[in-house]
Write a protein that binds this DNA or RNA. Structure first.
Lengths: 180, 180
DNA sequence: TATTGTTATACTCTATAACTATA
DNA sequence: TATAGTTATAGAGTATAACAATA
């Protein structure tokens, strides 16, 4: 309802009255000098690149993270995976569901605590993870080729510093800290 | 339906049979050494920090981007804002709607081309943007304090390199390239 | 025919609250 | 009472397809 808001208002100075044909140069400052903005643009660019290189395998970065953690830590619980990757308890459920339906991950019977499952990879999951790692390594090599191997190490160090600094900062421990 | 997928499957080697009480150390390798993963974690951490510091103003990073671009370029078109920020034509509409309903942005009458609007900030929008910039500058100072001013400049340079490298890469020019 | 804004729609990621079954 | 998993739901952000008005 009330569709589009008002138009034909104070009329904000067209800058170039009638001659506007050329695409116009849009000023972004100070956005490109802000770490948050630069991070977002870089992250989107890298993930788009990822999506292209992995499109035939139908795996998102998040799913790769889960497969990696489960592969490294057979028998781990969903909550452990979530805490390690910063995914909330409630959100990990459909993710594991999807991987289980594709027969990549199994929810095994838990040992002592019957509330939790023991996660593991199927042989199919292990095979896929191996292929994903091969491609990921290649992707990293391409990144390093662009910014230099030293640049890549330095970037990783700086990102880790940022992550840490923002995580500790104020009143709360973020991440998988759950529920109010 | 078919609710939860199978459980009680091959049973993936609990690793520590009965003694499992301690939180268990989860192995993440090689994720922390991957640029994409590190970027995602850093980006989430920074945006969470942003959300806390700006929560009273009810502005998302995307909205700050739009206010900045419109403020810098009065009279610009929606499509120009979208192209500058990497937001698709279809997605910018509800974003401008929201800012217009809050009386921060106006869709003025366009000059020559009657298909497009001439965007501008209201005085309220200008005041809010000024406050947002003040806080943003402070945030940047805090980031620089953590990783050093040199580290911040270097980070920005590396991120720009990554963004460029991934954007140019394969067959398509990404961003606001629209529709199939 | 192409472009601008628009609508409708869908999917992913993130987030909260509340339920269950265990502990 | 607390914890693990689950369900339902809501909000951003991103994506596509199609339509009207205009160029």
């Amino acid at each position: 309802m009330s569709g589009r808001p008002l138009r034909t208002s104070p009329l904000p100075a067209p800058s170039r009255p009638e001659t506007s044909q050329a695409p116009r140069r849009i000023e972004l400052a100070p956005l490109p000098d802000q770490v948050g903005y630069a991070l977002r643009r870089a992250q989107i660019a890298v993930f788009r690149h990822f999506a292209k290189r992995f499109s035939d395998l139908d795996i998102t970065p998040t799913q790769l993270g889960i497969l990696t953690v489960v592969g490294n830590n057979p028998g781990c619980k969903q909550s452990e995976v979530g805490a390690a990757l910063g995914i909330k308890r409630a959100n990990i459920v459909p993710l594991i569901d999807g991987l289980a339906e594709r027969n990549l991950v199994v929810r095994g019977q838990a040992f002592a605590d019957r509330r939790s499952h023991a996660l593991g990879l199927t042989s199919e999951g292990r095979a896929l993870l191996a292929e994903l790692r091969r491609r990921e390594a290649e992707h990293e090599r391409q990144v390093a080729a662009r910014i230099g191997p030293g640049g890549r190490r330095q970037l990783l160090a700086l990102l880790a510093g940022i992550t840490e600094a923002c995580a500790e900062a104020p009143g709360e421990g973020d991440e998988a800290g759950d529920d109010a």
